[in-house]
């Protein structure tokens, strides 16, 4: 389907529509070639999340520890599902890059802040990419994953006693993040940026 022609028929001046249009990647067709491309991008983000939660954590309360372990299990489940879907679509799942988070795991505050930043970013990444997914079942699944990343972010922000507005919540509408912003944020944690798919994706 020709996305541009479809967009032409839609109404652009609506309050809701303009809120969506303000999100960088929404309604721009250039970031991804097809659904497999979107899924592989999501897979990269999930690799980074999963690696983070697998690495271990600093001293946390038992409740915090349970939250973090549940969140990590969510990310692993996302990886499994996205990988299977890419394969079902006849694509090749992106390989996990080698990731190095440095010494972020020594300190509770730093650790949770890092997790919050990533959850916010990747929730926004799903929203930013959603407009470029053409298959509705995949869109449904991506939306479902996006919702859980938003849950993770809210709870982590609350653990950190972040402000209610501008912390736990960021207004009444979630903002999307575009692919370039996401990949740029990931780049510092890639062990061999020249040889990885992340770097390749950044230079697309």
């Amino acid at each position: 389907m020709n996305r541009r022609s479809f967009l032409k028929s839609s109404v652009a001046a609506l309050p809701l529509a303009s809120a969506a249009a303000a999100q960088p990647a929404w309604a721009q067709g250039a970031d991804f070639k097809n659904d497999v491309d979107v899924l592989n991008f999501a897979l990269i983000a999930e690799y980074f999340l999963s690696a983070f939660y697998r690495e271990g954590s600093p001293m946390l309360s038992s409740k915090e520890g349970r939250y973090v372990s549940d969140i990590g299990a969510d990310e692993d489940a996302h990886i499994a599902a996205i990988t299977a879907t890419v394969q079902d679509l006849g694509g090749t799942p992106t390989m996990a890059p080698a990731i190095d988070y440095g010494d972020v795991f020594n300190d509770r505050q730093r650790y949770l802040r890092f997790a919050l930043r990533f959850e916010n970013l990747f929730g926004g990444a799903y929203l930013g990419a959603a407009g470029q997914i053409s298959n509705k079942e995949i869109l449904q699944a991506a939306a479902g994953i996006y919702g859980t990343e938003e849950r993770h972010a809210a709870v982590i922000a609350d653990l950190l006693q972040e402000p209610v507005e501008g912390g736990v919540f960021n207004g009444a509408l979630t903002q999307g993040a575009d692919k370039r912003t996401v990949l740029r944020a990931l780049r510092p944690f890639v062990k061999n940026p020249q040889t990885t798919t992340v770097e390749a994706a950044v230079t697309l």
Binding site: L16, V155, L173, G176
Partner: peptide, 20 residues
């Protein structure tokens, strides 16, 4: 597509509400 984007951005906030 615009409405879908807007609805999705609301839905994400509803997910945060439910979690909290």
């Amino acid at each position: 597509p615009e409405l879908l984007g807007a609805a999705a951005s609301i839905a994400g906030v509803e997910s945060r509400h439910a979690a909290i």
